[in-house]
Nucleic acid binder design. Structure first.
Length: 309
DNA sequence: ACTCGACCTGAAAT
DNA sequence: AATTTCAGGTCGA
């Protein structure tokens, strides 16, 4: 257990702190000068990278093992990339963003985070998470600056809708409160989801007995991928749906591809039925690495769409 | 099972 | 400058 830690990244193939934090997979972190500051459990971390040298500074003691796990450094990215490089779109995405990794976030944090993340753009989500942490998290000083840890659901559960509304959550306030109460009520909720297969967990969260109000198909996939290490989850948001047929060029049977193209052109909101079809097709193509495929498609897809305009 | 409008809020677009 | 649109979707009729 240490406060300072230096990791030699040459052991792990490509890794970019900037890509990881700018990929939209995690909220509540900010870059000041060349340092990334953000909460990890009850600690605030300061991360910086100069080529293969990753420096970690922590407000309390942490273990190297934890950090390596958190940063997803154990993923065999060379194997992942080889498996996903199936067409021109994917090869381009990988050559640009190969240095991105999926972080292993705290499960309950991802539930609260992605409940906030619906129907808002990323800067707005960052603002909500920042205000939420400022109000309900613990204060931590690091490098002469004040930071806040991510709020625990127990603290949110003791709050009320009016107090949460002041954070600017809008209709998500009720979702956060209800989810926090449910997690407090069912102390085994997190562990049960952890032990389930991806499919069972998704069904439970979206339509089963463990359903949380505000958790739909997309939010469930984000929670399961980023919080529960269900790597075959394939969250489909507006960006992924916009580039879906391009990203899957030559990877689906022509009939299927044509059907998706027509449906996706027709409407920009996915119903549960179409969502499942698109996500299941993605899993058929990308298998156990569908989560990484989604991150590549999201990141490169946004570049691609910006370039089109 | 499928469709549709409503939903908090604030920044960006018109 | 006032008004509309849009944003990592989901709910309920």
């Amino acid at each position: 257990m240490v406060n300072e830690l230096i990791l030699d990244l040459s052991k792990y193939s490509s890794f970019s702190l900037d890509y990881c934090f700018k990929s939209g997979q995690i909220f509540g972190w900010r870059k000041m000068d060349s340092y990334w500051y953000g909460p990890y459990d009850d600690v605030v971390l300061r991360l910086s990278q100069i080529s293969d040298r990753l420096k970690i500074h922590a407000s309390k003691e942490i273990s190297e093992k934890e950090i390596i796990h958190f940063l997803g450094l154990k993923d065999k990215k060379k194997d992942v990339d080889k498996r996903l490089a199936l067409n021109l779109f994917m090869r381009s995405a990988i050559s640009r963003y190969s240095a991105v990794r999926i972080f292993r976030q705290d499960p309950s944090n991802t539930i609260l985070s992605y409940l906030c993340a619906q129907n808002k753009n990323i800067p707005a989500i960052e603002r909500m998470i920042f205000e939420l942490s400022r109000k309900f998290g613990d204060r931590v000083e690091l490098d002469g600056t004040t930071f806040y840890t991510f709020p625990r659901f127990g603290r949110i559960a003791r709050s009320n809708v009016n107090e949460l509304l002041r954070v600017g959550l809008g209709y998500r306030a009720k979702y956060l409160l209800e989810a926090s109460k449910a997690l407090k009520e069912d102390v085994d909720y997190i562990n049960k989801i952890k032990e389930m297969s991806y499919v069972n967990a998704w069904n439970e969260m979206v339509a089963g007995n463990m359903k949380l109000i505000g958790v739909g198909p997309k939010v469930a996939d984000c929670i399961l991928l980023y919080g529960f290490e269900k790597m075959e989850a394939f969250p489909i948001d507006v960006w992924v749906s916009r580039v879906y047929t391009t990203a899957f060029d030559k990877l689906l049977p022509e009939e299927e591809s044509k059907y998706y193209f027509e449906r996706l052109c027709l409407k920009n909101r996915l119903d549960k039925g179409l969502y499942l079809k698109l996500a299941n097709s993605a899993r058929k193509v990308f298998g156990e690495y569908a989560g990484y495929a989604q991150l590549y498609i999201f990141m490169y897809g946004r570049d691609y769409l910006r370039y089109c305009r």
